[in-house]
């Protein structure tokens, strides 16, 4: 049973493993690395939004915090990567816990604004503490990730690292969703009152998921920082939070594959459109509009419906 459930991700893993051998082109490899990083961040946010039904417009802050934490520790203080990573996770989780405890009492648009404000405050602090973070000019010279003497110093190696992390987290997330916690989450999504009545500790659960999704974002940020070897406050920009949210909605909210699909589409689309120069923005906006208008469940739901219709037609004929 467990095997069948994990079959798609295993197939996906195999495909991901062979892909770079087929295209050893650094440009496409670089794009795939970014897609992987964004997919990790969206997976956490999707868990929070699609399953627990809580919105966050501040996730870019956690992404940046993760990147800055390992970046500063490894570049300025020569700490090894793994301890730095542990520190990054603890710091982000701690900050997320504080923000979560405070903000998650709010609902709907109020929660959106509160997370947005918290994220912006992080952005402003990263900008202003020049001595520590390098300020708006950013922090350069972040070393490559080194684990046990093996250095992930090329896009090729990094690609495997990013997608391995992605697959591990995917399986972890799938297990959470199919566990007691996952059922509690979905219950929370449809009705908080009912969830509380069923004996679910709503506040604790919400904060736990918020912290977990922040850690996903931080992991993605860590990978980003070490792959580009440079980080600036731009990564904690509100527009990036909005971009992550858009990826989920376009890909399919409440669907684990949705985040990946959205990340891939929203990363590839501007690349494909760059030939249109000044028209790029308007075409990009229009495509986004059309997808959201005609596939309100996101691309993933769209594919599912398509699959079911085809299946029905085929069966109907047989």
């Amino acid at each position: 049973m467990a095997f069948r459930r994990h079959l798609p991700i295993m197939l996906f893993g195999c495909a991901a493993a062979v892909l770079p051998l087929a295209l050893k082109d650094p440009y496409y490899l670089g794009i795939l690395v970014f897609i992987g990083i964004f997919s990790i961040a969206t997976m956490g946010l999707n868990l929070l939004m699609g399953y627990a039904g809580q919105i966050s417009l501040g996730h870019a802050a956690f992404y940046a915090l993760g990147a800055y934490a390992t970046g500063i520790l490894t570049a300025k203080y020569n700490v090894h990567f793994l301890p730095a990573l542990a520190a990054a996770i603890i710091v982000t989780a701690g900050i997320a816990y504080v923000i979560g405890m405070a903000c998650l009492r709010l609902k709907g648009h109020y929660l959106a604004v509160a997370t947005l404000a918290a994220g912006e405050i992080v952005f402003i602090c990263l900008n202003a503490s020049v001595g520590f973070t390098g300020g708006p000019s950013g922090l350069a010279g972040i070393p490559s990730i080194e684990i046990g003497g093996f250095s992930f110093d090329s896009d090729f190696k990094f690609y495997y690292l990013v997608w391995a992390v992605f697959i591990l987290l995917f399986i972890l997330t799938a297990n959470i969703i199919n566990s007691r916690t996952g059922r509690a989450l979905r219950c929370l999504h449809s009705s908080e009152v009912a969830a509380a009545a069923m004996g679910i500790n709503v506040t604790t659960l919400k904060v736990q998921i918020f912290v977990l999704s922040a850690v996903y974002a931080a992991l993605a940020g860590v990978l980003y920082g070490h792959s580009v070897t440079f980080i600036s406050p731009q990564a904690s920009d509100l527009m990036f939070s909005v971009k992550l949210l858009t990826m989920i909605v376009v890909g399919g909210m409440g669907h684990l594959w949705g985040g990946v699909l959205g990340a891939a589409l929203l990363t590839l689309l501007p690349e494909a459109l760059s030939a249109f120069h000044d028209y790029e923005l308007i075409i990009y906006g229009s495509i986004l509009l059309v997808i959201v208008m005609f596939l309100p469940g996101g691309l993933m739901r769209g594919f599912e419906t398509l699959y079911v219709t085809i299946l029905k037609k085929v069966r109907g004929r047989g």
Binding site: P26, Y27, D155, F230
Partner: peptide, 20 residues
Amino acid sequence: IEDNEGDEAKAVMKVKKLIN
């Protein structure tokens, strides 16, 4: 000519493309 929209992540992608 590549347009990176003043975005650092995009600048990285575009430079890789140019090298390619």
